[in-house]
């Protein structure tokens, strides 16, 4: 672990577990060390896991439509915890009633996420981005 450690979980009161399992499997197969904190995870759960595991990225999943509410203040809390440099991704099903994607993306970028993924994103894409952003690409 270390260089390739990422924290993965579903935020808020969301119980959609299937995508998480697929991401976990795909990331491990691609050589990442995955700290999977499961569904129903709070912002604090992500932060504590990232500190103890020395993770370099946090991948937040949200399907049930309340991601914006659940992610408010997350960036500030990360700064508070000394994790201001950690890489932050979010994906799943982020907009309620499918607004215009650019708008959704912009909103989550403002909330501090470096990459924001639309529904039905394939794990390969995330893995490619992660390797690039973490400088693991040789």
């Amino acid at each position: 672990m270390g260089e390739r450690t990422v924290v993965l979980g579903v935020i808020g009161a969301d119980v959609h577990a299937v995508g998480l399992r697929i991401l976990d499997y795909a990331l491990r197969s691609a050589g990442f060390d995955v700290v999977n904190i499961g569904v129903l995870s709070s912002q604090e759960d992500f932060i504590k896991a990232a500190i103890e595991s020395g993770a370099r990225a946090i991948l937040v999943s949200s399907l049930y439509g309340h991601a914006e509410l659940d992610c408010r203040g997350f960036k500030e809390k990360l700064q508070e915890a000394g994790l201001e440099n950690i890489l932050l991704y979010i994906g799943g099903n982020l907009g309620i009633g499918q607004k215009n994607w650019e708008e959704v993306e912009k909103k989550f970028k403002e909330l501090g996420f470096h990459r924001v993924y639309p529904p039905k994103t394939m794990p390969d894409e995330v893995i490619r981005d992660l390797k690039k952003d973490l400088g693991l690409e040789k």
Binding site: M1, G2, T5, V35, E52, A55
Partner: peptide, 8 residues
């Protein structure tokens, strides 16, 4: 402190 492979 730290998980295995975690915080140094």
């Amino acid at each position: 402190g730290g998980t295995d492979g975690g915080n140094r």
